[in-house]
């Protein structure tokens, strides 16, 4: 589970960088050919906000998933430890007699 999650996070990070870089490249191209510089400067600044929205959403989802899957692993360990202990308790000589 953990390695699949790591792979997804890595893929998401790489995809995000590539996509935003591509979008920023298109913006830069549009800016170079434009006469009105004021509007394009604002658009470029807004791209930063857009990037922040996107990063926050993804980071939020994956951070929470990571925490939940880690907690699940810990509980599964605890469960197997308790099951072993229960087996020992029920098979002890005092119990049998």
């Amino acid at each position: 589970m953990g390695k699949y999650l790591s792979a997804c996070v890595l893929a998401a990070a790489m995809l995000s960088i590539a996509t935003v870089a591509l979008a920023a490249g298109e913006q830069a191209g549009a800016m170079a050919g434009s006469i009105t510089s004021q509007k394009n400067t604002n658009t470029s600044t807004n791209l930063g906000y857009l990037f922040a929205v996107y990063i926050v959403t993804w980071a939020g989802f994956f951070a929470y998933l990571f925490l939940v899957s880690r907690r699940q692993k810990e509980i599964e360990k605890e469960l197997s430890r308790l099951r072993e202990r229960l087996g020992e308790e029920s098979s002890s000589p005092a119990k049998r007699t």
Partner: peptide, 30 residues
Amino acid sequence: YMLVERYRVRKSEADVIELGRRIQMAHSEV
């Protein structure tokens, strides 16, 4: 997906409590 995962954790937590209770009972019997 997050909801299902969190539900599983909550269920496992309940299992841990239940097992702990059974161990305590078995221990007191022993």
